[in-house]
């Protein structure tokens, strides 16, 4: 049943138990706050990894979908008094639909051009939020969003909000893992390797990529809804490019195209700056050095496949080398040299 899995996924139950027990055992509101933030970051990193890791598409607009979720939630809650059980799914769907509509026309773009188009999307969303005063109140933001409420229980403390984030994270992991393990996921991974070969055997390349893009946006939007109810205030800052870059770092550090990798990356990169806080000015320098060490020593990420210190000899593993994409369909005709593979086989 599992032999066709692209990546072997170890059971995460002990970690889930630990994640539930930790804030009960350690009664420290500061830790609870960090965990609540880390849970949301983990949802964002796991969903970004679907597009980036399994789809091989660099998306620089992921924080924008987070923002759509947060603003939709804020507006629904403030103007219509919509409860949490309405704002959450509506925010997620709004982000997913935006992702779907946006993805169709740009998915034929390759490599850097796709990344630039997603960068533009992120910037457009931020500019709209910043300048559409009548709705978003521009730079002043939207304060006074009510706390999340579930059947009479109100998520007031950091710990309550951490548990909401954890529940969303578990849902995101289950759904995204199912997608990756399904025929759709396999097709997505195939398009990452060679999209033209995939099309030649009937794979709807744009369709499967759009699906992945919309699913990733869905969970980013849901995380935005939790964020809005948790912080009770929404403005543009958390939805900018710098946040997307931080998410990319989480995916890369934890292990691209693995399920647990982005979670580990999100937790590490959320906690690290706080752990290093005592070092004052040296803090960000050390943070940067640690990031570079990981990328140098373990380019596939902490949980990526391959042996420990794979990068020791300075060569990235094959899975991280950008895949060949020929810009024109007739590129193969222009190739006059036999491919190395062919030469090797012809011996």
């Amino acid at each position: 049943m599992r032999r066709w899995r692209p990546t072997r996924i170890r059971p995460g139950w002990p970690f889930l138990v630990l994640a539930i027990l930790l804030p009960l055992l350690v009664q420290n509101p500061f830790l609870h706050r960090l965990l609540a933030v880390a849970a949301l970051e983990a949802v964002l990193a796991v969903s970004l990894n679907l597009v980036l890791g399994y789809g091989g598409l660099i998306s620089l607009g992921h924080a924008g979908f987070y923002g759509i979720g947060a603003y939709v939630t804020a507006l629904l809650a403030l103007h219509l008094g919509a409860p949490f059980l309405v704002t959450l799914p509506v925010a997620a769907l709004a982000a997913a639909i935006t992702g779907w509509i946006f993805a169709r026309p740009i998915l034929h773009l390759r490599g850097h051009y796709f990344a630039m188009a997603t960068l533009a999307l992120g910037e457009i969303l931020v500019l709209v939020a910043y300048n559409w005063d009548a709705v978003t109140r521009g730079p002043s933001g939207l304060p006074g969003i009510p706390r999340a409420e579930l059947f009479g229980w109100v998520a007031t403390t950091h710990r309550d909000n951490y548990y909401l984030g954890l529940a969303l994270l578990v849902l995101a992991i289950v759904v995204i893992r199912r997608f990756v393990d399904s025929p759709f996921g396999l097709s997505l991974i195939a398009t990452r390797g060679d999209d033209q070969a995939a099309a030649s055997i009937g794979t709807d390349v744009a369709g499967v990529r759009t699906m992945a893009f919309a699913l990733a946006a869905f969970f980013a939007g849901a995380a935005g809804a939790l964020y809005a109810h948790y912080i009770t205030f929404v403005s543009v800052e958390p939805f900018q490019l710098t946040h997307t870059i931080a998410l990319l770092a989480m995916v890369a550090v934890g292990g691209i195209a693995t399920i647990p990798g982005p979670i580990v990356g999100a937790v590490l990169l959320t906690l690290l700056p706080e752990v290093l806080r005592g070092l004052a000015d040296l803090r960000m320098v050390l943070y940067g050095v640690l990031l570079m060490l990981v990328i140098w020593l373990r380019p596939q990420g902490l949980l990526g496949q391959g042996r420990l210190f794979a990068g020791w000899r300075g060569r990235p593993p094959a899975s991280l080398v950008p895949q060949r994409v020929s810009a024109e369909p007739n590129a193969e005709e222009r190739r006059t040299q036999p491919s190395p593979r062919e030469e090797a086989g012809a011996r």
Partner: peptide, 25 residues
């Protein structure tokens, strides 16, 4: 359905997965 002059398999996938991708659509 066509094949390519220079073989274009999904080299990081297994033989079985290559065939599965084609049966998926």
């Amino acid at each position: 359905v066509r094949t390519f002059q220079h073989i274009r398999l999904f080299s990081e996938l297994t033989v079985r997965q290559n065939v599965e991708v084609a049966a998926a659509p």
